[in-house]
Design a protein around this nucleic acid. Sequence first.
DNA 1: TGGTAGAATTTGAGTACGCAAAGAAAGATA
DNA 2: TATCTTTCTTTGCGTACTCAAATTCTACCA
Lengths: 155, 155
Amino acid sequence: MRLLRAHANMTRDFNAELQSHGLTVTDFEALSRLAESPTGSLRRVDLAAALRLTPSGVTRLLDGLQGCGLVCKEACSTDARVSYAHITDKGRERLAGAASTHLEALEGLFGERFSPQELSALCELLGRLPGAGGDEGPACPALNAADGVAAAKGT
Amino acid sequence: MRLLRAHANMTRDFNAELQSHGLTVTDFEALSRLAESPTGSLRRVDLAAALRLTPSGVTRLLDGLQGCGLVCKEACSTDARVSYAHITDKGRERLAGAASTHLEALEGLFGERFSPQELSALCELLGRLPGAGGDEGPACPALNAADGVAAAKGT
DNA sequence: TGGTAGAATTTGAGTACGCAAAGAAAGATA
DNA sequence: TATCTTTCTTTGCGTACTCAAATTCTACCA
């Protein structure tokens, strides 16, 4: 119950905060995943798994991001069924802008309430729940993504 | 991130499981809150706070439950603005039916992965997050609600 | 006594999903 | 080679929310 309620609040707060950047939490995480990929691209099906969305959810999510020019679609040369989502430069910029305030908010939210040990304990415990583990990606892709953005911008 | 992903999975799984009872997770929690209330009623605004929904979300939620005959609407004699949601006998039955399998599923999900100490630690940590605290109600109303149901049925 | 500020609720419009079904293409089998 | 199954994606339809605005009522204050 506490997990559910904590989630409801966090989602609302983060969505409100990210809204100033024109993103949702899911948008943000999707861009993070793409940004941290070596090629800047992911198959839609892999993105779906990473974001815990259904295929149709990914299609609609990317429709929106594509409409904003933050990602673009790429065909696969060896398999005509798959199409890749590729993050654009504009997408990386948007992500970078959102990441700074978003990470700051995260920092404030958790830093105020937990010691580093508590935080890692919480992370470990949550990681045991199904789907929350590190199998499909790092615990906090946003951090890596932020680095990736910095690298991409040549700074 | 792990919290978000754990939530996504739990919500989907629980919704799938509760669907056999014709309920969603939110429906279930709403009925729990009503069932544990001494009068079986709550003001809509209080229910909204308890469930972390907006007022309009509560209206639509209760529209659905009312359509199924699980709750009914009651006017307030002293303040014509407020209307109470009141759980019906049918609502208590439905809740009781869902609670057994739902609590079993919860038991399985958490019991397998955590020791009792870990569970209480996790609960305490999550409780520090905004809105997840015990201010607006017990950490797990379902348990009390299940008792309340049993009592209501005269068992 | 009338006017105004605030609270509880509903409604309209929009969004972000989910599920199930359909379409297109790859690989397997005969 | 022809068909059959599986995989990846999209589309139609439904649902559960959100926000903003409108409504109705209470409470306070001149």
